[in-house]
Design a protein around this nucleic acid. Structure first.
Lengths: 148, 148
DNA sequence: TACAATTTTGTAATCAATACAATTTACAAC
DNA sequence: GTTGTAAATTGTATTGATTACAAAATTGTA
């Protein structure tokens, strides 16, 4: 479990960014803050459906779009083309396991070392993705290689 | 126009990676080597359709998947979720214009400065994306801001 | 309570990508 | 040259995430 955040605090954060804090918007943001698994839209939808039985998936899409446009969350593009979400938009990289699809945060120490090609460009966002195999999956692969 | 590459040379490159050089595979690779615009599948398809009237889009998908699996090309994930392709898989970053969708190569000088979170991970690929506005689009935005 | 604005819902549509069977082509053996 | 088999290519159907949009529900306020 992640550090608890009260719905009041979550509402204040939304208001501070100019988003009216509805129940759905509070719950979506709170879900992302408390479940740092970089969930897909459908994962968030299914989790919140338990608490809000009338919930529609369009509301999740709308809410995530609003939160993202205000910089409160981050979009992560997966190799499968599915978008995943991160409630902590501070600068860091994302590792993705090509086998199980898990996404893991990785710290970045220095500013990106761009040399040339940026002349005239207005860079507003930076995203660093690493791909490979997580600990569990790389161990499984070793075992299956030994067998074959 | 980019430096010309003969179909013979392109065929040799394919053979060297264990891909039998068919007409389609040669033309797709050659298109990516000669048109450094990071095209989408559909862009490649429409361009080659002029030369191969019976071409099917599935063949483009199949070919790109084969070339990518052998590390001969690079996949680029766009914010819109569309996959674009780069015929030069050497290490570099990609800048994407959020307005016009253009993708531009940017050099990276240092190795990625990962600090912690990589313990136990087998990292096989790294992708650095920059987003923002290209020269033309940022100039247009300035003008429209002045008007409003 | 009534009204307007906003939010939420739910269905239909979009579109890139995939699955897969049918067709065609390449190529070696005879 | 013909035959046969494997590989490549085609084309249609399907999938699945995302968007569009209008109807319904909710909120806040006069």
């Amino acid at each position: 479990m992640q550090p608890a955040i009260t719905t009041g605090e979550t509402g204040d954060r939304l208001r501070a960014k100019g988003i009216k804090p509805s129940v759905i918007r509070i719950k979506v943001l709170q879900y992302l803050l408390e479940n740092r698994v970089h969930p897909a839209v459908d994962t968030i939808y299914r989790a919140l459906l338990k608490e809000i039985p009338t919930l529609s998936k369009t509301s999740i899409y709308n809410t995530l779009k609003a939160l993202n446009s205000k910089g409160m969350i981050m979009e992560i593009m997966t190799p499968g083309g599915e978008i995943r979400y991160d409630g902590y938009p501070a600068r860091h990289a994302h590792f993705m396991c090509l086998k199980c699809g898990a996404i893991k945060d990785v710290s970045l120490s220095c500013a990106t070392c761009l040399t040339h090609g940026t002349e005239g460009l207005k860079v507003t966002e930076e995203a660093v993705y690493l791909k490979g195999y997580c600990k569990k999956c790389s161990e499984k692969l070793k075992i299956s290689n030994r067998k074959s």
